[in-house]
Nucleic acid binder design. Sequence first.
DNA 1: CTGAAAGCGCTTACAG
DNA 2: CTGAAAGCGCTTACAG
Lengths: 338, 338
Amino acid sequence: MAYVTIRDVAKHAGISVSTVSRALNGNGRISKETKATVERAVAELNYIPDSRAQAMRSSKTRTVGLLVPDIRNGYFAELAYSIQDALFDAGYCTFIGTSSESASRQDAFIMSILAQHIDGAIIVPQGESSDALKLLVERELPVVFVDRRVDGLDDVPLVDSDPLPGMRAALEDLRAHGFTKIGYVSGPVHTSPTLRERESVFRALACEMVGEEHVFVESTSFDQASCGSVLKRMSDAGVRALIFGYSQDMLRAMSLMGSMGLRMGEDFSMVSFDDLELFRLASPQVSVISQQVRQIGCRGARLFLDMVGEPERGMRAQSRSQRVETIYVPRGSVGDAR
Amino acid sequence: MAYVTIRDVAKHAGISVSTVSRALNGNGRISKETKATVERAVAELNYIPDSRAQAMRSSKTRTVGLLVPDIRNGYFAELAYSIQDALFDAGYCTFIGTSSESASRQDAFIMSILAQHIDGAIIVPQGESSDALKLLVERELPVVFVDRRVDGLDDVPLVDSDPLPGMRAALEDLRAHGFTKIGYVSGPVHTSPTLRERESVFRALACEMVGEEHVFVESTSFDQASCGSVLKRMSDAGVRALIFGYSQDMLRAMSLMGSMGLRMGEDFSMVSFDDLELFRLASPQVSVISQQVRQIGCRGARLFLDMVGEPERGMRAQSRSQRVETIYVPRGSVGDAR
DNA sequence: CTGAAAGCGCTTACAG
DNA sequence: CTGAAAGCGCTTACAG
């Protein structure tokens, strides 16, 4: 007898199932004594209503799917945490899934939460669109994208961050430290509109500030192997100040520099996107363009809850979408140009 | 029409609901043509069976609750990832919740997954036992504890790690580098049997190896404020080699040392439990006693699946429980004693 | 104020 | 081989 049902409670209390239900939900009037009897029975049996059965009538499961690319990535962990936390406080249970940055994995997760009859979903999409993602969006379920956009699915409300304010402040800081040549490592841009936007924001601002001939961009994926050669090319071009659009690349660069005996803030001045814990613990601490991930998570959750509350308010996706400003946090990884 | 039902499919195909069900589940015999018709209708309508309704009959939801103390902690993120991954491959959807190291939060999560009629749960318990935890365990649902034990709930099968092998290797390494006095920072032991066990394993081995008078243990919680004083007391006692039983403390210590200009492997030789990504990216890299977290996660998931498969095999919890060996990974944070 | 009945979406004996 | 009926655990009009 793993689960106690409402019938068990009714039997135990010696009254009908419908009366128990009403006593529990406060619908219609019931006598005080009956109510007390029911409550006693519930407590004695440790009855917990089956929310699936409840859902079957109300067509609300109070369940939401949350898909993130990789929970092991500190940034997504933080994002998932803040979203899940906000939803839990609003009475929602969250199915968390990981796409492992693969479309098939993402699709499998979406299909399985759809089968669970989620009330809606919050998705940090991996790269491209996919069959299940389209399916999900075409249903009339509330869906919110967080952190990343998907080309071709522009009707989905989106909460992400605006790279501009942080980027501008970072560039100004580098210039204030005397750097006139600036390099940018943009990560795997082909998989991500977000990374593409950062790169183009960088280009525009940097060209304006130091002139096009002093701006260097490496748009290739910065894997462990090519890491050294990117640093070398930058160095050969006389670039000593770098901004990383993709924090995973920054981590690889730090690790490589450590093993080569190079120091941040001396050999290279460096700024990275994403305020990872790691960056605060590094020595020197890493200057970052912070996405204010908790804010993004909270706003994403709030937007979702709004949509669940009033699904057909007729607002256009664009007007629901929100951008959270990036902010620049200067720390020790930027030193003076020599 | 957010969700398509089996009735919609039946209507679309012009046959009865029961036949559709049978065609889909392959029970009983159905004609090839009927089957084809059904499959076409399913595809055209993008029908996905409501797993809650299915569950209502089978009393299996293929849903499991996974509770971790804090998903933002890299160790638990990795653990959650490997568990969730293994369960997903076995066809289970996972509700992930965070106890935020608080009993009330843990209880709220347990109650809500119980309402979802999970088939069972995998729990990384925060500290002490609690009402909901007991309730969960008393039900006949399969429950597995991972990584941490709970005093008083000894009948729950447990997958955790055995600190001894890694601890011994770490101590031998420190001795090989010429250290004769060894310090140990044990973290918030009062909240965790795991931390207590590590401490006592350390004491036993260290006393044996260097003699009781050269063994120093700080069992107090190592918060940011007291961090400096612990390092100072160790230093005053002439201790230059430290083992951290609780990786969060190690992080704090690293951060503090960074700001004081002290170097790992020179001013202090240090070893920490848990093989965090951060420790591999630090410079020098941190020697660790690794818990082999992926192994723990996989074994935990497998054990759970075994229990779901054959719930009453009558095995005692003790015989189901498993320990994964810790291993010592020497890196640059241990240098020669001067 | 309380109980019997219908129905949410499914599956599975039970007739045909 | 196919359909009508009952039932999983709940809630909510509908009678009394």
